[in-house]
């Protein structure tokens, strides 16, 4: 039996299985987003409608729930708190992470590998386990009920992964570029600022996006350290709203939809970066 000279071999399985592929892909996608779609649509119904027929469609569609959440609840204040904390965390992680990863990638000095291992150890420290002593420490530092109480620990716990992702990226940039920059009179810091950072923008965006999403979604740390209702973030707000107005199912659905909208939009734009970042992490 001679080898098939036609490359159609590669096509054949695709031809018969395409409908099957679509069917499976549709089923998987449906399971993933059906609950989300249900919540968003449910926000357009009234609570009596939902109780009478939990799985039905809005009839008629009502905007009242969404309007109510946007005008009467603390939604905007909480969204602002979430944004400030997530931005602060992202900036902190990127700045501190770049500085440390730069040194670990482009300086040769005694103890470098030791320092790197010291940071990677942090990957083994689960932030959940440290939450009680963390709370006590923040209380002693009188940082409780401030943005810093969330931002600083979040930066600390994101640093190990950030450094692990950034270091190979920064050290992969050819030495010749550094030499060329030196000839042009740039010191090492000038090289970092003018050449390395612009070149490593994709990696920076990746670590930034990962830190931002993690911070935006965080719940446990804000739950413990932000007792002040005025500082509550969106995840806390969703939780409070749902336990405060248990009978207002439609309102909870609307609030939940609005709270997940930013994350969904953000993800739609940044999907490539997230996947790319994880890809880098997998390569090691």
């Amino acid at each position: 039996m001679a080898a098939d000279p036609y490359p159609s071999v590669t096509r054949r399985p695709v031809a018969w299985s395409t409908p099957l592929t679509y069917a499976l892909a549709l089923a998987v996608a449906a399971v993933s987003i059906a609950p989300v779609v249900y919540v968003i649509i449910g926000g357009f119904r009234t609570t009596p409608q939902i109780i009478a027929d939990p799985a039905g469609l809005p009839d008629p569609w009502v905007w009242d729930n969404y309007v109510r959440v946007l005008t009467q609840s603390d939604f905007w204040k909480q969204a602002l708190n979430s944004a400030v904390i997530a931005l602060g965390t992202t900036v902190g992680v990127v700045v501190l992470g770049v500085c440390a990863a730069f040194v670990l990638a482009r300086y040769t000095f005694r103890g470098r590998e030791g320092l790197y291992t010291f940071f990677t150890l942090g990957l083994l420290f689960p932030s959940g386990a440290a939450i009680l002593p963390l709370y006590l420490m923040l209380r002693d530092l009188t940082l409780i009920n401030s943005y810093y109480a969330v931002i600083l620990p979040q930066i600390a716990f994101s640093l190990p992964l950030t450094i692990v992702i950034l270091r190979p990226f920064l050290s992969a940039i050819p030495r010749e570029l550094e030499d060329a920059a030196a000839i042009d009179g740039a010191g090492r810091l000038g090289f970092l600022w003018r050449i390395l950072l612009p070149l490593s923008r994709p990696a920076l965006v990746t670590v930034g996006v990962l830190a931002f999403v993690a911070s935006w979604n965080a719940f446990l740390l804000p739950l413990l350290v932000l007792g002040d209702v005025d500082l509550h973030t969106l995840p806390l707000g969703v939780q409070n709203f749902s336990s405060q107005y248990t009978s207002d199912t439609a309102g909870i659905l609307a609030f939940t939809s609005l709270a997940m909208l930013p994350a969904l939009l953000f993800f739609t734009f940044a999907e490539k970066q997230i996947v790319g970042g994880l890809q880098g992490a997998v390569k090691g």
Binding site: S32, I33, V36, V213, L234, P235, A263, L264, I274
Partner: peptide, 16 residues
């Protein structure tokens, strides 16, 4: 679409 549940906040998914 498949990644949507992963980016939702745990709290949002839980309440849903």
């Amino acid at each position: 679409l498949v990644f949507v549940p992963y980016v939702l906040a745990e709290v949002t998914a839980g309440i849903m």
